[in-house]
């Protein structure tokens, strides 16, 4: 008896299998690389040998690709990342009051009171203060992203980097390099800049109280965790499965959804690879909005449409003229 959760994010696609006691039995963290369908097929293939199709009792999706993938895998619940992250954190620690989540393109803060989300905020149109900001700067410095945190911990100097915008940060960083600062100090400056940006944009005016959870892919970076602790003057907890918390939440939500409805799972099985899925896009010319509509096909049969503003493709399975 297992529950499967899939979090299809902009940077990573995560899988989690929970057992009947809602403990993590298996987890995968795969790069999406702009091809969510392929990442999901790959993930299911990796899990195929360990679990029987019939052993999966419920499937939930979350993340920015949740709708498209829900159709493909046959999900029982499709929920946004905020709810999923909150549910997962509450499952681990029912008294959690603040969740800091930094992902590839999104960063969010969730405030909870007595186990209920009372407030949240997400970054607006700009991706400064998210994982992609760090990614870009790490590339510029020639440091693998997974070693960035260790570099920051080696710093013995404080270098201030302008963090408002990734472009400003880059020019400031180059300037500081030319002034002769060592790499670890600059990396620490970057971590401080991201945290400063996060706290003054996303978390502005929010009541951040302990226990604080730090989750999402960026939580792997010890430099950022330290910078948060220094700025907030309190301990920040990184849960064991920090990078797949969304998927854990999705699995729990799927279980809850089926318990409420009393139905059985719509899961199509692990054999998606054989199903031969493909997507293509076309520009709908029925009105002047000219929406870019995505078509998902399984073995040549259309199983879903996405991306139209009016919803007429979304709700109908018909061939584009």
């Amino acid at each position: 008896m297992y529950y499967l959760g899939i979090d299809i994010g902009s940077v990573s696609t995560d899988f989690v299998v929970l057992n009947k006691d809602l403990e993590v039995e298996d987890h995968l963290y795969l790069n999406t690389q702009g091809l969510p369908m392929k990442a999901v097929q790959e993930g299911l293939k990796l899990l195929k040998d360990k679990y029987l199709n019939e052993a999966i009792n419920a499937v939930g999706t979350t993340g920015s690709g949740r709708k498209i993938i829900a159709t493909v895998v046959g999900a029982d619940s499709v929920k946004n990342e905020i709810t999923a992250h909150a549910v997962a954190a509450l499952h681990i620690n029912p008294s959690v009051k603040t969740i800091l989540e930094i992902g590839g393109q999104d960063s969010k803060i969730i405030i909870l009171k007595d186990g209920i989300v009372t407030d949240f905020a997400m970054n607006t149109v700009c991706a400064a203060g998210t994982g992609s900001f760090l990614d870009r700067q790490a590339q510029r410095l020639g440091i693998p992203i997974n070693q960035l945190g260790d570099y920051a911990l080696k710093a013995n100097n404080v270098v201030r980097i302008a963090g408002r915008c990734a472009v400003f940060a880059e020019s400031d960083m180059i300037h500081k390099q030319q002034m002769g600062y060592d790499t670890p100090s600059i990396v620490k400056g970057l971590c401080d800049a991201l945290v400063r940006n996060y706290l003054s944009n996303i978390a502005k005016g929010k009541d951040i109280s302990a226990p604080i959870f730090f989750q999402g892919g960026v939580a792997a970076n010890k430099g950022i965790k330290n910078a948060f602790e220094e700025a907030l003057h309190t301990q920040v907890l990184v849960p064991e499965h920090y990078n797949v918390m969304g998927a854990i939440g999705a699995a729990i939500l799927a279980k809850e959804a089926l318990e409420r409805s009393g139905g059985t799972t719509k899961f199509k099985g692990f054999d998606l690879e054989a199903a031969h899925l493909s997507t293509r896009g076309f520009e709908c010319s029925d009105c002047s909005n000219q929406c870019e509509v995505i078509v998902i096909e399984e073995n040549g049969v259309i199983i879903g449409y996405y991306g139209d503003r009016c919803g007429k493709w979304l709700h109908s399975v018909k061939m584009p003229s």
């Binding site: 920015s64 946004n80 990342e81 905020i82 709810t83 209920i116 989300v117 949240f120 997400m122």
Partner: peptide, 9 residues
């Protein structure tokens, strides 16, 4: 995502 999370809340 934002609207759905708001309504869930």
């Amino acid at each position: 995502t934002r609207l759905e999370a708001f309504s869930d809340m």
